[in-house]
């Protein structure tokens, strides 16, 4: 069983692509670091008692005045940079992953239904998708965020930041899933196995999700990886713009925003450490996405 997996096409291509192996290692390393942040990180950046101002603005350990307790230095509050990044990545990945999952479920359901039923429902969904496609994702997310600020009472808004941000990102990314799912469903619907299932009188939902969905998973998987990268980037951008998460629960974007204040002074690590971390994360996910696309789409090989 394991041997068959090892020998399958996808794994074979993976074993022979150094770029994919490096990208996957980086991604897994960051994912693991973010997941186990509370156990790995030496201090909790949300807990004011775990760091002190005396340790503020210490450079990385290889520079003069570096402190071995803080390998990548500290920020102005005395927070350990490594801990801040791990917790920041945790938040960024949490928002990115949940936004991607919501967008997938929403987009694939709408796309499947549009492709399966066709007709007026299909036309309505696709017109909405067209309009949204003309608006860039970041504009949509900003608008949804602005609307949420207007509708929600000001007292609850700070507690709901993460939820609002996740939904705003998810709603700006569903279109890709819907269009791809619809196009593939159109092709599958006329195949014999679907026709047979329909004639047997199976429930449309069952036909869509049990019969068609597994056969259109390939391209969807590729979009999921690419959109995970987009979601993380969107969150980082929104937080950088000061629209996303507040400074007391920093995601990677917020950390970069804070680091910008030190651009002109000598404390380069406060800005560049989280920036490099974010870029490494996004580039490795994008490389994996490229790899998956080449593997699942033999025409492009």
């Amino acid at each position: 069983m394991l041997w068959r997996l090892w020998d399958s096409d996808g794994v074979y291509a993976f074993r022979h692509s150094p770029a994919a192996i490096i990208a996957a290692s980086v991604a897994i390393l960051i994912l693991g670091g973010a997941l186990f942040a509370p156990w790995i990180a030496q201090s909790n950046p949300y807990d004011l008692s775990s760091f002190s101002l005396i340790d503020g603005l210490l450079p990385p350990v290889w520079q003069e005045f570096g402190d071995p307790r803080f390998p990548l230095g500290t920020d102005d509050q005395g927070r350990d940079m490594i801990s801040a990044i791990l917790y920041g990545a945790r938040l960024s990945l949490l928002i990115g992953l949940s936004a991607m999952v919501i967008a997938t479920v929403l987009g694939v359901s709408l796309g499947l239904a549009a492709g399966y039923y066709g007709g007026r429902f299909d036309a309505i969904v696709m017109r909405i998708a067209d309009v949204q496609l003309a608006l860039p994702a970041i504009l949509t997310a900003l608008l949804i965020d602005g609307i949420a600020r207007g509708i929600l009472p000001p007292s609850s808004i700070e507690n709901l930041r993460v939820v609002v941000l996740t939904i705003a990102i998810a709603l700006s990314l569903w279109v890709n899933f819907a269009r791809t799912a619809r196009a593939s469903t159109f092709v599958e619907r006329n195949k014999e196995y679907v026709q047979a299932a329909m004639i047997m009188g199976q429930h449309p939902l069952r036909v869509m999700f049990i019969h068609i969905l597994p056969n259109i998973m390939g391209p969807l998987l590729v979009i999921m990886t690419v959109d995970l990268a987009s979601a993380i980037l969107l969150e980082a951008t929104l937080s950088f713009l000061g629209i996303g998460l507040p400074a007391d629960s920093p995601s990677l974007g917020t950390l970069i925003r804070i680091g910008m204040q030190f651009l002109l002074s000598g404390e380069w690590w406060i800005l560049w450490v989280p920036t490099l971390f974010l870029v490494a994360l996004v580039v490795s996910i994008n490389i994996l996405g490229d790899f998956l696309r080449d593997t699942f789409n033999p025409r492009l090989r």
Binding site: A229, T237, F240, L271, V282, I287
Partner: peptide, 22 residues
């Protein structure tokens, strides 16, 4: 260009500021 697509716009801006401004 592959790297260029992956790097967010604001990071490109920061890098340019750092190089040519600072």
């Amino acid at each position: 260009t592959l790297v260029g697509v992956s790097i967010p716009t604001f990071v490109i801006g920061i890098v340019l500021i750092f190089l040519f401004g600072v």
